[in-house]
Each structure stands twice: as structure tokens, then as C-alpha cells.
Design a protein around this nucleic acid. Structure first.
Lengths: 242, 242
DNA sequence: CGGAAGCTTGACGTCTATCAAGATGTGTGG
DNA sequence: CCACACATCTTGATAGACGTCAAGCTTCCG
């Protein structure tokens, strides 16, 4: 059973801009299927030139780059509403990999018809550019965080930012946030070693700021975390959904 | 005297894709003027909503984010051919500032007519998206560098990447590259302190890998720097120019 | 039961930040 | 022309943050 674009459960959330009927019809044609994947599945590989593009309907994942020496940098978290494969779509190949951390459901699109966005759906093309600019923004924030902040600050900022994105999507339960990631994932995202990530987490736990276990993150004192983190964490306004 | 888009000196370089006559005509209409600025001038400010967009004709600069505590992260270098203001154009406000490090000449565009790209120039809109994806790619690389590499590795990678971009544009003279930046700029780009940046530079100088003084960077042994840097530095293929 | 994956903790070393001071060069005003 | 301020680069000393190594613990699963 494939979700119809006209009844997209994601688009009902008011963080996402509504579409005209015409646009919905276009998306229906653009969508070629749906993909359900297990945790750990690689969706896109760095260097690959996937014939398919994806939009995340549900589930959480990671974007990351691998280094020749085996190290890994997580460049962003993947949330419902993320569009995957734009780089391959326009630049010819992915510059990072994408992996599912929980079960995920993806809308599948045909890469070859990406050009139709630009040719016949200028508002949708504009939305694509919007999303690319958004990714750039997220990465700039992460870069600033890793480049200028210490372990505690990075972790506060990173988890607040994560929680803010969850809240936008309504996938949290009050101050409880789904967190299907390992400490190694978190370490790779923050540019810290696993051990130091663990110790930093402990420090924040002891301060009563957060809990993290069994795939659930709880933020007990977001205000204090915000003070720690230097970079203000703000939710962007309403955004497009591809 | 304003440069005519039909005779754009940049577009002659074969890293940039050629335009059709129709596209050139469109760009001519889109371009509202030219701006010459001195070193140190701020072109765009984080949080601002500039009514103008820019394309760099010549000169070098920096994109950076400022933190409340006065620290600064340089998120990228600005080269000729860079398009400035896309974030403000689509997202409503800039997420970083842009500053000139040398004298610069900018093509000035009217932000309000950005929408015309999408409405009437699908190939140009596509190019915009291409550039946004490109920026994302650069930032992902920088993030990986800062998150996973030590000072020597970061510096080797950062300077190699810088040199590669210079070479693409032909603004180098053999292994001599213009470098109108201070060590503080470099430190802020690499996520290192000024002192440590200086000492790391010294180390590389003593190894005979590079020279850096009086605004000129010389790379004596790029191969060794490449070995150091883990992340391979590759020049992207031909790219669009707005 | 044995093994794998993830989490936790302590010990130790090193990389990097911070502090402080001096050197050099440049532009400005007297 | 000199004095001075200012920016930039340089260097040493010191301390702290973070990485690495190593080991043990728990949970889960075949």
C-alpha cells in the first residue's frame, strides 16, 4: 500500500507549506514507489550515482562521510521530510552516504524526472533550492559548533538542535525524544571520541540536564543547555516538503 | 564602466559552463550594476535580508558566522564565480556574513527578480540549485576535516583545497597562490587558535612544504600535503556561473 | 553457553588553548 | 622626521581538554 501524495501524513503538519492541487498531481506522477527499510540499511552511498531520489516519510537516519583511515563524520541527522539524493541529482554523485538508524519509509522518485521540476514546476524547483540552502545552513551551524565549542557545549547544542527538529515534526512526546543512535553515532556527529562522548554525556546526566537510554533522549533542562551552547537554537519557519 | 554579461571575463574560463544567447540576455536584464569594494568591507551580514544578490567577478573573501562570545567560524572562502545571498534570497535571511579580504568587484542583482529564474529560466534555476548543492558539499568536507583531523592534517587539507580552487580559476601563478588572509582568518577557518595555527604553519614551513608571507602562499610539495590530509582534494567538474 | 555490540570507567599521554611578551611593519599625527 | 598606536606575526611556558588504550559490564541473540 503506497501513501498517496494527496493524503501525505507529513504535509498535514503545519511546518510544511501546503501544495496546490496541481503540485500534488505533479508529485503523484513524480513518485514511483515507496520503500520500507530496516535499521542499518544504507540508502545512498558516497560516490554513487543513484537513479533514484528519496523523500523521508518516517524514520530517522544519518548522513555521513567516511575517511580512508576508517574514521567517520556524521554531517547531519536525517528526519522525516528530508530530501535525499539532491547532490547526485544535480552534481552527478553523492558527496556523502545516507543510512537508516531506525526503520524508515521512503518515497521513491525517478532521478531522470528531476529536470521536470525546473521545466514545468517552478515553485517546486524553488522549493528544492530552498532545501539545499537549508542543508547548507545546518552544516554551517554544525561547522561552527565543532570548530568553536568544547565537548559540553557541542553536545548541548547538538542535542538541542536535534530536539528542536523533532519538535517541529511532532515526533517527540513532551521532553522525550526518539533517539535511535549509538553513542558512537553521536561521537561521530560531534567530532569527539567515543570515550569522551560517553564521559560528557555522564557529566550532563549528573547535572540533571538529560537522560539518554534505550533509544530515548529526555531533556530535563533545555534552558540551561541553551545557555551552555552559545549558538542559539532556533526553529526555521515553515518549510517546503518535496 | 560595467562589464557586459556577454563578455564576462569569468565565463571565458572553461571551468564554467557556457550560456546560450538567450541566457546571456536574461542575465543582462538581471544584472543591475557592479560594485567595487575595498578589503575589509562587509558584503552581507548574518541575519540581514539584503535586497541585493551578488556574483563575484574578482577578488577573494570569507563567509563566516559570529558567536555571541566573540568567536568566529569561517565557513568557506569566497572566490570569483561565487554567488552571494542565495540564503537571503530563498530563506529570507542570511545565515552567515560575507566579507571582502581583498579588493573585490561584484555583479549586483535585484533579489526580487530571483523568482524569474524559476519562472522563465529553468536552466538558470537548475544552476542555482547546483551551486547550493556545491556549497553544501564544501561545508560537508570542511566539517569532516575539522571534526576528524588534527592541526597539521586540517591545514594541509584546507590549503590544498584552497589552492585547487585557485587553480580552477587560473588566479594562481604556478605554485604561487594569492592569499589575502591573516593567520587569524586561517585559524577561524580551521577551528584552531591563532597561536596553534602559527605554530602549525611553522612546522610545515620547516618541513619545506610551503611558504606563506606577504599575501602569497606557495605550495612546494602538494603531493606530501595530499598524503597528510586524508581527505582527497578533487576539483569538481565544470560548473555553472550565475 | 559463547560471541558480538554497545556502554562505562580509569589511567595515561598528547594535542591544543591560553597567557604573556616581544618583534616587525605600517600608517597617522605632531 | 619622529613618536605613537595598531595590526600582524612569532615564540615560550603552562594548563587543560581530549584521545587512546585497556578492561569490565550488560544485553541480546544464535
Amino acid at each position: 500500500m503506497v501513501t498517496d501524495c494527496g493524503h501525505c501524513p507529513l504535509r498535514k503538519r503545519d511546518v510544511f507549506e501546503p501544495l496546490t492541487d496541481d503540485e500534488v498531481a505533479f508529485m503523484r506522477r513524480f513518485k514511483v514507489g515507496e520503500l520500507k527499510i530496516d535499521p542499518g540499511t544504507t540508502v545512498l552511498m558516497e560516490g554513487s550515482n543513484s537513479p533514484q531520489l528519496f523523500s523521508v516519510l518516517s524514520g530517522l537516519g544519518l548522513r555521513y562521510k567516511l575517511l580512508p583511515n576508517g574514521r567517520r563524520q556524521v554531517v547531519n541527522f536525517v528526519f522525516p521530510g528530508c530530501f535525499l539524493g539532491l547532490q547526485a541529482g544535480v552534481m552527478g554523485e553523492m558527496k556523502h552516504s545516507v543510512e537508516a538508524s531506525s526503520a524508515m519509509v521512503l518515497c521513491v522518485f525517478d532521478r531522470a524526472s528531476l529536470w521536470n521540476f525546473f521545466k514545468s514546476q517552478p515553485t517546486r524547483a524553488y522549493d528544492l533550492t530552498w532545501l539545499a540552502a537549508m542543508e547548507e545552513h545546518f552544516m554551517g551551524e554544525a561547522l561552527t559548533s565543532i570548530g568553536q565549542m568544547n565537548a559540553v557545549q557541542r553536545m548541548c547544542w547538538g542535542l538541542l538542535r536535534y530536539a528542536a527538529r523533532c519538535t517541529d515534526l511532532g515526533i517527540n512526546d513532551g521532553d522525550h525524544y526518539p533517539f535511535p543512535f549509538t553513542q558512537q553515532d553521536l561521537a561521530d556527529a560531534l567530532g569527539l571520541s567515543l570515550v569522551h562522548t560517553n564521559k560528557t554525556l555522564m557529566k550532563l546526566r549528573e547535572r540533571g540536564m538529560l537522560s539518554l537510554s534505550d533509544g530515548v533522549l529526555i531533556l530535563h533542562r533545555p534552558e540551561e543547555m541553551q545557555e551552555q551552547s552559545m549558538l542559539p537554537v532556533t526553529s526555521p519557519a515553515r518549510r517546503p516538503l518535496i
